[in-house]
């Protein structure tokens, strides 16, 4: 099973960006490039919030270009506001089972299991404003996991977190993605995130051009330029 964008042109106001890629379910993909190059536009286009004016988006051999965001095989974590501030952590996660899902015995069991997995069981009755940024990110991930969508789109949701916390969350995501055969498509302008996630890369240029690279090919071409210290350390050790 795979997701492929075939010459997809996504329109955001007066700006259009074209991309071409394919990702097998279970593998990951990074949309990497400078700010303002159209990475988030592509992500919003995949999710169904921006129109795909040319090309086709294929999942499991079917076109999903025209279907509603909620019916696409994606869940999406935004840069901010991923949790509703009037709902407790557990109620926010319960939303993943449907807007009208009740906290009955069965659902409560499912929610508690996920809370345990992301290490938030003790915080289940707290409101989002009363937990830390890292915990909020984990709660949003928990809701995504409960939805059981095969692809998770991340629009730099951990940008506000410090490097260590970001790595901790990414490591949690990689762990659960391996367990649940989940694909992650990550938007980032930080090459360290791209390296940490692994997977193939769509490189965005400032002029709106995009190029698709397999993981090895990307790092053999850009490793020295993007992560000079790391490359230098490796060469000298």
């Amino acid at each position: 099973m795979s997701l492929s964008a075939t010459k997809c042109q996504i329109k955001n106001g007066g700006f259009a960006v074209q991309c071409d890629f394919s990702v097998e379910i279970g593998n990951h993909l990074s949309l990497f490039g400078p700010s303002g190059s159209g990475k988030s536009s592509v992500l919003l286009g995949l999710a169904g919030f921006l129109p795909i004016i040319n090309g086709d988006l294929i999942y499991d051999d079917k076109s999903i270009t025209k279907i509603e965001p909620k019916d696409r095989p994606f869940d999406l974590l935004f840069q901010e506001n991923n949790l509703f501030p009037h709902l407790t952590v557990s109620r926010n996660i319960l939303l993943g089972l449907g807007a009208k899902a009740k906290m009955d015995l069965q659902n409560s069991h499912v929610v508690n299991e996920i809370l345990d997995l992301v290490g938030l069981y003790k915080e289940r009755d707290r409101l989002p404003q009363n937990i830390s940024g890292g915990q909020r990110s984990r709660a949003a991930i928990a809701r995504s996991l409960i939805r059981k969508k095969p692809i998770l789109l991340l629009d730099e949701p951990f940008a506000a977190l410090d490097f260590e916390l970001k790595n901790e969350i990414l490591s949690l995501l990689l762990r659960v993605s391996r367990k649940n055969n989940l694909s992650i498509i990550l938007v980032s302008h930080d090459p360290r995130d791209v390296k940490y996630l692994g997977g193939d890369v769509v490189l965005f240029s400032e002029n709106g051009q995009t190029d698709f690279y397999k993981n090895k090919s990307f790092w053999s071409n850009f490793s020295y330029k993007l992560l000079p210290n790391e490359t230098h350390d490796k060469n000298t050790s």
């Binding site: 909620k70 019916d71 994606f74 869940d75 935004f78 506001n81 991923n82 509703f84 939303l95 807007a99």
Partner: peptide, 10 residues
């Protein structure tokens, strides 16, 4: 929260 409501399917 509009997009979030939309993607959750509220």
């Amino acid at each position: 929260y509009g997009k979030l409501m939309n993607i959750i399917g509220v």
